[in-house]
């Protein structure tokens, strides 16, 4: 399996937050979602991939090449869409595109024009006149027009209306109809990732918790529910988080089959959504 991105022991220190020992691979030809609560380190990882911030340790390989030593080479194959696209405000879209085009060997001007038409954007419109959704579309058009092998997006769906969100996600799916194309996007909107991601990497407080196939995660994780005082987290194999209410206890487990074997009819077993995972894990196994 070829990997579009290989991240090994990546490290970045900030005051009050450290990304520690991040290691995972993004296989070519699939959509990977980077998920985690706000401030967990998703944007940090994406910025480190693009070398927008300097890393304090570790290694990033893109298409098998070191991202620092081959910076222009790898960036020529990446379409980057930031959460808030920023371009010079008083410049028309067509001029921005023409300024960027020469940097990409595979730039397809007619494809770009078609995309602009499809997105209902005029090349003579000035960037500042665009709504947030239109800015995203423009940014996406630029990324697609040079046939990027890797589409990298940071919180692409935040702030978009539901219709465009759906269209955007389906478009990501159609990008990987070509098995040499890869998509990595970060989001805290778990339902979007559930819809469209093939793999999920979960990051929490600067550490990678897991990096797996989405369907596997949703099949093996589960929430064990029982009345109060019936269960303790310690009774549940692979317990990862707990919530107590007046009516009962809910325990997240990463192996619901083992839990079922161990506890049988003593508890109820629910599917865990990505949102559940994020929620329960941030509460931890402690007394909540």
């Amino acid at each position: 399996m070829t990997n579009a991105i290989e991240i090994k022991r990546l490290r970045k220190e900030y005051k009050g937050f450290t990304l520690e020992d991040a290691t995972f691979d993004v296989p070519e030809g699939y959509i990977m979602g980077l998920i985690g609560p706000n401030g967990a380190g998703k944007t940090t990882i994406i910025k480190l991939i693009m070398n927008l911030i300097r890393r304090d340790g570790g290694e990033v390989r893109l298409f098998g090449l070191d991202n620092l030593r081959h910076e222009p080479e790898v960036k020529a194959r990446i379409g980057f869409v930031y959460d808030v696209p920023r371009f010079h405000e008083d410049v028309p879209l067509g001029v921005i595109a023409s300024a960027i085009a020469p940097f990409y060997v595979k730039w397809d001007a007619s494809l770009f024009r078609r995309l602009l038409e499809e997105f209902e954007l005029g090349p003579k419109t000035m960037f500042k006149k665009l709504s947030h959704g239109q800015k995203m579309k423009f940014s996406l058009a630029l990324a697609l027009a040079h046939d990027a092998d890797l589409i990298l997006m940071d919180e692409p769906t935040a702030g978009l209306d539901p219709v465009f969100r759906f269209e955007l996600l389906e478009r990501l799916r159609s990008i990987i109809q070509n098995e040499r194309k890869t998509v990595l996007f970060s989001s805290h909107i778990t339902t979007d990732l559930e819809r469209v991601a093939d793999h999920i990497t979960f990051i929490h407080e600067g550490r990678i918790v897991f990096s797996e196939a989405k369907d596997d995660i949703l099949e093996t994780w589960g929430v064990v529910k029982a009345g109060p005082d019936v269960l303790q987290p310690a009774d549940v194999p692979e317990s990862r988080g707990v919530k107590r209410t007046d009516y009962g206890i809910e325990i997240l487990t990463s192996d619901v089959a083992a839990a079922r074997d161990a506890l049988g009819g003593r508890a109820v077993y629910d599917k865990a959504t990505l949102e559940d995972i994020m929620f329960y894990m941030s509460r931890g196994n402690g007394h909540a």
Binding site: G29, R173, I176, E179, A197, D198, A213, K214
Partner: peptide, 12 residues
């Protein structure tokens, strides 16, 4: 891949 796209499920 086509099937995955049509059914809106993962390629995996």
């Amino acid at each position: 891949r086509k099937l995955a796209q049509d059914l809106q499920i993962s390629v995996i």
